[in-house]
Computed example of a mutant assay.
Amino acid sequence: MRNNSGGAEMVTPTSEPARTITIAGHQSLLTADDLAAAAQHVDDVMFRMLEPSECKRAMAFPAKYRMLGTRPQRVRLAGNAVAPPAARDLIATAVEELGGAA
């Protein structure tokens, strides 16, 4: 599950789309070898920050899309981005409303 912290704590199953990926890098992935044991023993749950490539995939960027810079800079790039499918749909709607062909 992903856990977004910083005032709007949410836990989302990994089977659902990611919520907003923030530039601060507060996203994490919680895993457990045995979910039943983890429910009883919180110490069995491992915590790690998402890698830039995971943030990029969560935002639906193509696998070959390159983000340059240090790790924090790449997380910030993903966090400041508009997900490509959302950008595509917004542009198509704008073009359609302005009388063009999408």
Results as ranks from 00 to 15, higher is better:
Thr14Leu: 14
Leu35Asp: 09
Leu77Phe: 00
His26Met: 08
Ala83Lys: 13
Ile91Glu: 11
Ala83Thr: 02
Gly100Ala: 07
Ala78Val: 08
Ile21Asp: 00
Phe61Pro: 01
Arg71Ala: 08
Val11Tyr: 14
Ile23Cys: 01
Met1Val: 15
Ala24Asn: 12
Ser53Leu: 08
Thr14Lys: 15
Asp89Met: 04
Ala24Trp: 03
Val75Gln: 02
Arg48Ser: 11
Thr12Glu: 12
Leu29Ala: 04
Met1Ala: 15
Glu9Phe: 14
Ala102Ser: 03
Gln27Ser: 06
Leu98His: 10
Ala38Arg: 05
Ala102Lys: 06
Asn4Trp: 09
His41Gln: 03
Glu9Ser: 06
Thr20Lys: 05
Arg66Asn: 09
Pro52Thr: 04
Leu98Glu: 13
Gly100His: 00
Met59Thr: 07
Cys55Ser: 11
Thr12Tyr: 10
Ala81Pro: 06
Glu51Arg: 02
Met46Thr: 15
Glu96Asp: 07
Met10Glu: 13
Met49Lys: 09
Ser28Val: 08
Val75Cys: 00
Tyr65Asn: 12
Glu51Ala: 12
Met59Phe: 11
Arg2Phe: 13
Ala32Pro: 05
Ala86Asn: 02
Glu97Lys: 13
Lys56Trp: 02
Arg71Pro: 09
Arg74Lys: 08
Leu90Ala: 08
Asp43Val: 04
Ala81Arg: 01
Asn80Leu: 15
His41Trp: 07
Tyr65His: 10
Gly100Glu: 03
Gly79Pro: 02
Gly99Leu: 02
Thr93Glu: 12
Gly25Cys: 03
Pro72Gly: 14
Leu77Val: 05
Ser28Phe: 06
Gly69Thr: 03
Lys64Ser: 11
Ala60Asn: 07
Gln73Asn: 12
Gly6Trp: 08
Asn3Lys: 13
Glu9Tyr: 10
Gly7Met: 10
Pro85Ala: 09
Cys55Asn: 08
Pro62Ile: 04
Ile21Tyr: 00
Leu98Ala: 13
Arg88Phe: 03
Pro62Cys: 01
Ala78His: 01
Pro84Ile: 10
Gly100Gln: 04
Glu16Leu: 11
Ala37His: 12
Met67Ile: 05
His26Ser: 14
Arg2Ser: 10
Ala101Ser: 06
Gly99Val: 03
Val82Thr: 14
Thr14His: 15
Leu98Asn: 10
Thr20Leu: 05
Lys64His: 15
Ala81Tyr: 03
Val42His: 02
Lys56Ser: 09
Val45Cys: 12
